[in-house]
Amino acid sequence: MTKNYADLLAALHINGAHPGSFKQTKRMLNTLELNKQSNVLDAGCGTGQTIAYIAQKYACTVYGIDQHEEMIQKARRRAAEIPSPVRVFKGNIEELPFEENSFDLVLSESVTAFTQVRKALKEYRRVLKPNGTLVMNEMTKIGHLDPDEQAEFKAFYGFSELLEEKEWKNFLASAGFEQVDSARVPAYKDAPGEVYHIEKLDKAYNDMLMHHQLLTEKYASKVGACLYVCHD
């Protein structure tokens, strides 16, 4: 079975691999009005770091969904230790298994770029309550990439598209979000204490990690991330 970037993150036991690290997540959450009555969805929850934090800090109802089996199992183990309601689902965010108007907040941290973007955005809009909020921290093209460079980047990470900030905003508007604010996210830094278990990696994963680090350095001035805060 072919291994992909998500498999690598699972093999490295990484809690979060999005731009700005978990510090960015905390800063973002501090700008939102969450309380015990809030229903929150983390679309692409990974190992559950963010859903655990939200449930513990705000005591609200939190749902997480991801399609990677190993990450889901880790997220469920985290959730079992939290008194606030936390539910973890295995599924595809392009076809969310939730009713319309279910959530006050939908959160996506470096996930939507790995999907069929238009489908995912429409699903986020569908499951949000009226006046709900979508927050995305997503890979964004910030400089010019020639066709070969773009193909290399998309092939490694499995992107169907690599979007500029303007393109993200256009896609969000097409999905029904009338107000979209955006801001650049600081360059990616590993979270303090994050340990890569490189010595335990097989050759395929080790080669993949080296390639990831190479691309990160090669395209540092051309590919970054933006935080998108969206309302209907």
Rank of each mutant, 00 (worst) to 15 (best):
G64S: 08
R126F: 04
Q116F: 09
Y58G: 01
V88C: 13
C60Y: 02
K119G: 03
E109S: 11
K129A: 09
K74V: 13
G132A: 07
R77C: 08
D104K: 09
V127D: 02
G132W: 00
E95S: 13
M71T: 06
G91F: 12
Q116G: 07
V106S: 03
I72E: 08
L96W: 06
P83Q: 12
E94M: 12
G64V: 04
V106W: 00
K74H: 10
R118N: 05
R126Q: 10
Q116P: 06
S102E: 14
R125V: 01
I82S: 02
P97L: 13
A75Q: 11
I72K: 03
F103S: 05
R78C: 04
V127R: 04
F98Y: 10
H68G: 10
Q56G: 02
I82N: 02
E100Q: 14
N92T: 09
N92W: 06
C60K: 01
N137M: 14
Y58A: 01
N131P: 04
A113F: 01
G91D: 12
N101G: 02
K122G: 00
A79H: 05
K57F: 01
Y58L: 03
L121N: 01
L121R: 00
L105Q: 00
V88P: 01
V135T: 05
L134K: 00
P97R: 10
E69M: 10
Q56I: 04
V106H: 05
E123N: 07
E95Y: 10
G64Y: 03
A55D: 05
V86D: 03
S102A: 15
S108D: 09
K119N: 09
N131M: 13
V127P: 00
E100W: 04
E109R: 04
A120W: 00
E99F: 08
T133F: 00
I72W: 02
A59S: 10
K119T: 07
V111G: 11
M71Q: 13
R77A: 13
P97K: 11
F103Y: 09
F114K: 03
E95V: 09
V127I: 13
A55C: 07
E109K: 03
S108G: 14
E70C: 09
G91Q: 14
L105Y: 15
I93T: 11
E109W: 03
V111A: 15
T61A: 12
M136N: 13
Q56A: 05
K90I: 10
Q73G: 04
V106Y: 03
A59M: 08
E109H: 03
E95R: 14
I93D: 05
G64K: 03
T61P: 02
R76E: 14
Y124R: 05
N101P: 00
Y58H: 07
R87T: 11
Q73F: 04
L134E: 02
S108F: 04
A55P: 01
S110C: 15
K74G: 05
Q67C: 12
F89D: 11
F103E: 07
Q56V: 03
L134G: 01
D104P: 02
Q116I: 09
N101M: 02
L105C: 05
K119F: 04
R87P: 02
L128D: 05
E95K: 14
N131E: 15
A79K: 08
I72P: 00
M136I: 13
V62H: 00
L128Y: 00
M136C: 14
R125C: 06
S84W: 05
P130Y: 03
V117M: 14
H68V: 10
V117I: 15
A80F: 07
P97N: 10
D66T: 07
E94Q: 12
A75E: 08
V117F: 00
V88L: 15
R87H: 14
K122E: 00
